[in-house]
Design a protein around this nucleic acid. Sequence first.
DNA 1: CTGTATCCTTAAAGATACTG
DNA 2: CAGTATCTTTAAGGATACAG
Lengths: 170, 170
Amino acid sequence: MALGTGYDAQGCFLARALEVVGERWTLLILRDCFYGVRHFSDLLAHLDVSRGVLTDRLDTLVDAGVLERHPAGRSVEYLLTEAGEDLWPTVFSLSRWGERHLTADHPGRIFGHAVCGTDIEDSGLCPRCGTVPTVRELDVRPAPGRNARRREDPVAIALRTRHRMLDPLP
Amino acid sequence: MALGTGYDAQGCFLARALEVVGERWTLLILRDCFYGVRHFSDLLAHLDVSRGVLTDRLDTLVDAGVLERHPAGRSVEYLLTEAGEDLWPTVFSLSRWGERHLTADHPGRIFGHAVCGTDIEDSGLCPRCGTVPTVRELDVRPAPGRNARRREDPVAIALRTRHRMLDPLP
DNA sequence: CTGTATCCTTAAAGATACTG
DNA sequence: CAGTATCTTTAAGGATACAG
């Protein structure tokens, strides 16, 4: 939501949050980060966004403390901070909402509570433990019958090599 | 996030959801709806958005089945549909994220599980019942020490006359 | 590989006046 | 009260070429 003007005037917390994550592409960038995408070039390819816009969004997220820039060899890795990881419920709930109300499809991925192996509900609740796991306590797997459709994009590649969300890549 | 171009190309559910609720102002409009604001003029005054933009956003939300237009006397009421109510976890989690990570303030409002009177956690969980209540099962109250600061805007007025979320006004 | 810098085109937003 | 219609301004986005 192309930011600020008017939002800041509101004392409201939601408005302030939207100044950080409410712009176009931002939530999709973060979703990729949750799925293990870390490099500028991968985001560029996967999201089909222009370089200038991607630079701008990453700058905003780094400035807001949602992502951290980590030099890695001759490359750069963008990693979620703790504040960034706390955005998971928002990404999760909005994505699930899209699945339930905007398509006839079943979920594309299924999220399980890693410590007990139980799938979480749409509300985020683990029915066995009675808790709402954080993103670090979740694992992901593709829903049945969807594997064939998946392309070889950076998200698919990242998820194939590790199923636990936000664990370090091998 | 000024919509569509590029989003639709992605099969991703999050992208589709963002085409409906990802544009500027949309989530703030919905937040007001959750708090009981129903009229075009009240949204216009409270959000300080231009008429044209508000019309456009409401049209998008009605077309997507998030809001319904109800003629009421010589006026019109915009009411959340069931699909609209399901957006509560997104609005709630993003708002809470803003409170926790973008300000030094305490929450402005506190949400309680109506049937048991227990405050819900940031995750949405009711610690006493072990469930994640829907928005219809919640009540709201202002956090201590904030009453003085509140202005006489449509949200404040709506919340003063009824504390249960989404129940019919008297 | 990760950006910067420019240019260009389109689209979004505000203001205002007007209508059923 | 709830929009519509027009106009003007501004901003955002894409494309491309280039640099550290």
